[in-house]
Design a protein around this nucleic acid. Structure first.
Lengths: 243, 243
DNA sequence: CGGGGCATTGATTAAATTCAAGACTAGTGG
DNA sequence: CCACTAGTCTTGAATTTAATCAATGCCCCG
């Protein structure tokens, strides 16, 4: 169905399971198809307060999820990329508490929630997979949340870069050299910092010799050192310039 | 329902659904029973790194969930109470990434995960309920996480107290007058503050006339005002004493 | 070539942490 | 019954960190 000539607009259930790294445990008909949706950079996959009916799987591209508080200020809660299932936080209230904005042109698979529930009853492997994904998300949030309160700006930034590096590696990209797809303000918001602090933290790590940064292009010189500084208890900060 | 003579040691599937506020959508046999477990104050329901096989539903008592980082320092991630399902973050890795410690004597229902999955395939209502619970947890974490980075210590504390008040109200206790079951250090850890800052924030709100606090006993004088100060954008802080 | 976002950098200010005493409470044993 | 002790909580002063305020520089795009 998908011709090499253009973007894919339908995926089978099997393909979806592969994207999500779920082992369905049954043979699935290739007749079960899910539609794709293309989203331009700057556009939203779903908006806050919008009625929930579908989850989305990122097939390609890079997005941010944000929560907009009463005051109109928005906070970045994540940077979904290929293989991520987004919209899970909307199941509870049947309404999206957050918004997913494409940072690059994106291709997402539309997974209607009622349909997903049907597959869950039919295929226990899919249900287990869904639970595992939600659990992982929960554990990740939990681990991150507390760090933000405890760690210094420099350490937070190091952790963020190390995480990004790992995710790129998983997707088969270079874990050493990549492009940040988000602005300093977006990074900062995600880490609970101002854009100035985010910039300074990045520069500080650069001065320590662990990376080179030029605008949004980053080269990590020592990924291991980056990961090491994360687990330093009270983080000897790098506020002196490298001699 | 439970005889006054002693603690209940078994619950039916129906009772569990009621506790979790799930509508199963089917009639369930009362022959399906789940064992309870009593936990003394200070004891753990499960420990970090322990192998995962069961979730737990809090039937009575008050607990804290903590994550212990490499350095041995622990951070509080939540304060589960009656009706809360705990251990969900362990499904993914089949190992508990956090630990649940009883702050008072507790009674929890043991829900073996493999059994739960079976009920999920048999009863779509239960599966939907589980998904809703996990989604709610996810949304809650997300909403809280960012606030910690953005809001002032006073505002965080106000928010925390307002939340506690709401939860007590839901359980049929007084939303105005209650006992904090945790230490200042535990509150602080949950909010990303030191114990001193937690104490000061509490005193500041007290001086503003919104509450009286004596050790762990709290009386909220104006719950609405408390909730109002939460949504003030940059929080005119209350660092002057009330005239 | 000019203009509008972004990003960096510096100086100042505000907030929370840290360090350090003391005060209250409950529990223990004389 | 009263001191005594351990644990928790409050309060104060100093220090530190990141936010804020304010330019300036850089790059891409029209």
């Amino acid at each position: 169905m998908s011709l090499s000539s253009g973007p894919k607009i339908w995926s089978t259930l099997n393909e979806i399971c592969a994207l999500l790294r779920i082992n369905p445990g049954d043979t699935l008909s290739d007749d079960i198809k899910f539609q794709h949706k293309r989203v331009r950079a700057g556009q939203s996959v779903y908006r806050q307060l919008q009625r929930f009916d579908s989850l989305f799987i990122v097939s390609s591209g890079f997005l941010k999820t944000i929560v907009i508080d009463e005051g109109g200020g928005d906070r970045v809660t994540g940077f979904p990329m290929r293989g991520d299932l987004i919209g899970l936080d909307a199941i509870h209230a049947k309404r999206h508490p957050s918004e997913a904005v494409a940072l690059t042109d994106c291709d997402v698979v539309i997974v209607e929630y009622s349909r997903l529930m049907q597959f869950c009853t039919g295929y226990p492997g899919i249900m287990a997979g869904l639970c595992r994904i939600m659990s992982a998300e929960l554990a990740r949030e939990q681990a991150t949340a507390g760090m933000i309160a405890t760690m210094s700006a420099d350490t937070l930034m190091a952790r963020f870069l190390a995480q990004l590096s790992d995710r790129y590696a998983e997707l088969g990209y270079s874990p050493r050299e990549f492009s940040l797809r988000m602005s300093r303000a977006e990074m900062g918001s995600y880490l609970g910092l101002t854009l100035e602090s985010a910039s300074r933290a990045l520069q500080a790590i650069g001065r320590a010799g662990l990376l080179s940064v030029n605008q949004r292009e980053v080269v990590l010189h020592d990924v291991d050192a980056l990961k090491t500084m994360i687990r330093l208890p009270a983080a000897q900060s790098m506020h002196r310039r490298a001699a």
